[in-house]
Nucleic acid binder design. Structure first.
Lengths: 335, 335
DNA sequence: CTGAAAGCGCTTACAG
DNA sequence: CTGAAAGCGCTTACAG
């Protein structure tokens, strides 16, 4: 299906030169003389010529694009924790003229490991120079090594455990949980409920490790809600109710998604527990609840960092791993 | 820079046939006989061959990708109103094996018209079969027509005003404002404050039209915050304060972004006004404030719809325009 | 300073 | 049923 779009040949014809010269002129090769250069530019403008970047990539071997892939579905695009990361990646990439291609599975909800692995291998489709992979801990190591071997630049995003040999932006799950517990303790809480929402990653193990490492004389009641249940209103409600039965003085939760109404109910009742959540700076303050103490992370910055690592990976610099940073944001008064 | 990745030639060599046959086998052409087909498949698997989709696209003329473009910056990717639309588009596209390429400007904040126009023209770079364009009302008509003329399928997303001759998913701004006012009136409010946050689009005009069309015996105090100020905490705070001075019985706002804390302050005080916001169904209930009445829109569904229109546009069906639907979601109790 | 030619990795009539 | 060839729209040594 030949389209109406002018090609480099059309421009060549219109300006009485050959395609090679047009190419050189367009790319700013100093060898083409000013007068022909101008002639070519005018023709290109008149014809509204735009170079076909696929064809160019086929020749040059780099596409100027990176893939963003996540095994667990397009919902991640609207997730208040992840969306700012994507925005950060995309913003940083745009500044270099690099485009972002989304490799999202068609599936709606839960993680399917086989599909995840296939998904990641799509980064080999030649449309991108590499990619940033979320939830890489769910992929088999062979797949990741395979990608590297095939020459795609890969950055692992938000992994809980370190995967040696790769660029990665590591999550601060462990730190955040420890910090939340410390903060609650500082404010006087001794009976503390923790609600952990896992999205198919080994979140709960890591979270628990964080809590233990605080080594504080408090009684902790941990309730996990597993990936498959996250989307079930019932399961979340039951977990919150069960925690509340212990009459906690503080309630720590790792995600306000799917939790909002329950937390509002639990926390805003007079004499209810203090609430500790894990916000993101760039999710904007309006997305946080008044009355919640946030241990927050600059997620946009994390995205920018991932992109910078991607550039390093392209240049085959030695891989490195950096952990996200958190900070405390005191509760906003309720009334 | 030749990479390590095997090409169709390598597979051909390894299975003792020619590239053409490999191509046919891989694409499932029934003319290749079962035994050679199997031989080819095995070789492909063994070499971990993946077809180069750019090269394929160069031949076939379609890329299996669509561009998502927005003139006003990557922040839209994390915006609770738009993010679910992107997710919907991406989800629907994924089911067809169609990938989404993000064309976001590098700019941080405000809309620059010239750049917007350039931005849209990037859909001509040959990497996509067409695109979905947000905030198309900020583009010059010539640009849109140019895209069409060049054979790219275009869908306009969330325009306030109809642009004839194009596929478009129209915003329901006008309806939402009218509905909010009616709802407030039904619940007994007679003194009503309205805060309009415009993101560089002619939002305020449309919103005002919606309010007027309700034709209700209420006194409306409208305060606009313009695009440039949206990111300024000060401007928003001042606007809210100014509205509150009128002692409104209801407060209508079109976006809770940048507003959260101010609204919490205004609305949750005892005897404060009723609050009416414009939520999105798939932004998840946790993103909404307790105590707010929402006139909500299924934004994910809007994204899916945009993708379906994109398919129609590809097939050159006659363009059509559909308006988003809203529904009422009663307030969630605060305590 | 510019042209002619080869090639990037595919697909697809056209022969045989 | 498969091979040989041309071509998609570019780029880039290599000549001249």
């Amino acid at each position: 299906m030949s389209s109406i779009r002018p090609t480099i040949k059309d421009v060549a014809l219109a300006s009485g030169v050959t395609a090679g010269t047009v190419s050189r002129a367009l790319r700013g090769d100093p060898r083409v003389i000013e007068t022909t250069r101008r002639r070519i530019m005018e023709a290109a403008e008149r014809l509204e010529y735009r170079p076909n970047l696929q064809a160019r990539a086929l020749q040059t071997g780099h596409t100027g694009a990176l893939g963003l892939t996540c095994p667990s579905g397009p919902w991640i695009l609207m997730h208040p924790y992840f969306a700012p990361m994507h925005a950060g990646v995309t913003s940083a990439a745009s500044k270099d003229g690099v485009r972002v291609l989304l490799y999202m599975p068609a599936g709606e909800g839960k993680l399917e490991l086989d599909r995840s692995n296939l998904q990641a291998r799509e980064l080999l489709d030649g449309r991108v120079d590499g990619g940033i992979i979320y939830q890489a801990q769910t992929l088999s190591p062979g797949v990741l090594e395979g990608l590297q071997k095939m020459g795609v630049a890969v950055v692992l995003m938000n992994t809980d455990e370190e995967i040696p040999g790769f660029f990665q932006v590591q999550s601060n799950t462990e730190q955040r949980l420890r910090e939340s517990l410390r903060w609650a303790h500082e404010l006087g809480a001794r009976r503390i409920g923790v609600l952990g929402l896992s999205a198919g990653t080994p979140f709960n193990d890591v979270a628990w490790r964080g809590l233990e490492s605080a080594r504080l004389p408090v009684s902790v009641n941990y309730r996990a809600v597993e990936a498959d249940d996250v989307y079930q209103e019932q399961a979340v409600r039951a977990a919150v109710d069960s925690l509340m039965e212990g009459k906690p003085e503080a309630l720590i939760f790792n995600s306000e998604i799917h939790l909002g109404q329950h937390l509002a109910r639990a926390g805003q009742a007079p004499g209810g527990p203090m609430l500790f959540g894990h916000g993101g700076i760039h999710t904007d303050s309006s997305l946080s609840y008044p009355g919640v103490h946030y241990v927050e992370t600059d997620l946009w910055a994390a995205g920018v960092q991932a992109y910078l690592m991607f550039k390093d990976a392209l240049q085959r610099k030695p891989p490195r791993s950096e952990r996200l940073l958190w900070s405390r944001r005191p509760e906003t008064p309720k009334g």
